[in-house]
Design a protein around this nucleic acid. Sequence first.
DNA 1: GCCTTAATCCGAATTGAATCCGAACAATGA
DNA 2: TCATTGTTCGGATTCAATTCGGATTAAGGC
Lengths: 206, 206
Amino acid sequence: MTRKPQQQRAKATVDAIVQAGFLCLAKHGIEGTTTRHIADEAGIGVGSLYEYFANKQEVMDAMYQMVVADVVSMIQPLTPRLVKMEIHEAVRTLLYEFRELLMRDDARYLKYASQAVNVAQRDNLEPINKILNDLVVQYVMHHPEVMRLRNLPVMSYIIINGGIFSVIRHLGESAPMLTFDQLAGGLADMAKHVMDGEMRKVDNEQ
Amino acid sequence: MTRKPQQQRAKATVDAIVQAGFLCLAKHGIEGTTTRHIADEAGIGVGSLYEYFANKQEVMDAMYQMVVADVVSMIQPLTPRLVKMEIHEAVRTLLYEFRELLMRDDARYLKYASQAVNVAQRDNLEPINKILNDLVVQYVMHHPEVMRLRNLPVMSYIIINGGIFSVIRHLGESAPMLTFDQLAGGLADMAKHVMDGEMRKVDNEQ
DNA sequence: GCCTTAATCCGAATTGAATCCGAACAATGA
DNA sequence: TCATTGTTCGGATTCAATTCGGATTAAGGC
């Protein structure tokens, strides 16, 4: 029966468990992490873990809550500054803060996020990346005007990764805020805008 | 000791196991799927499963291979048509084909992909989505000219989801093809291009 | 300070799923 | 047909997650 920690030492125990969770995840990976690992790392007995968490998953959930809370409280105080910036600068600033947060404490949040978001890292999205890159290359060959613009690699990387993730996430949503048509149209528009925009940038520099 | 299937019936067994894997995943979710489930669904004994797969993970890997192979062989024959299209049309076409593939056979690939790509669906990225949406709203209030353009929701959705995923994926890569600066700059450029492009579209319609 | 009670901690015992293994059952081919 | 090799099977084993009952410790009233 899981209970709420009331005394000070119990709060410390709960916290130690969550911290140990991050450490173990970093050390052993998500599969290799056992409740005994976590308990040992936290310096407590296995039984104590189950006083406050119904099961291992709840420990993971608590870790997740912590990540989310930290992301939110990273963005919140940043908002007033961000909204006054140019869009370009705002995005960059936010991204660098995000990276800083992920890398903090020996990248513990990043390690968690990598495991949580993306299991298929064991091997490779490589074949898919490859064929999509081939597609881009061939596309460029058929549209010579595109060849002028640089950071094509960057833009493809983002659109490809972002596209795959958005689509999978969207199709899996139970109550999507968007229709698939909107999403697909949006991605298409985005690709077009990026191409036009980059092209224009090149023109202006000439 | 895992072996290669040599006789016809053994090949059928291997195939049945992989197929059963997809069915069980759809039925019980990734956690709820046991080797016995898979074996039962495939109409074989548990032991047989271990003749061809060293462990449960290898079954999952085989499923993954199959998804990847099918994605590749979906794109390959499509390429000649795609490269002749306008970028906008090409992206849309590709996305619709991708969806069709994911939805095929009672969405078996989608169910796999959702589980594989995104564990944290149990609860919510909600807090993060919310704060980011708030950020967008406040941003718009400070930049009234932006207010004119519609499908802001679509564009935010894509940039936010795509951005989060790209960054996590990139930071986790052992041999990244891009620097973080390039990625961040690319995402920022992209946001700018989209804003400019959408704005221009609205202007033209007036 | 002492006692009562609830909170906390513990780790051996239980449970159940993953994996192993050796016997039984087909196929091949001589 | 027999020998050999491939295949299937499900009970036995292993190992991690979870439970449970008792030991230990803090808190508060007297």
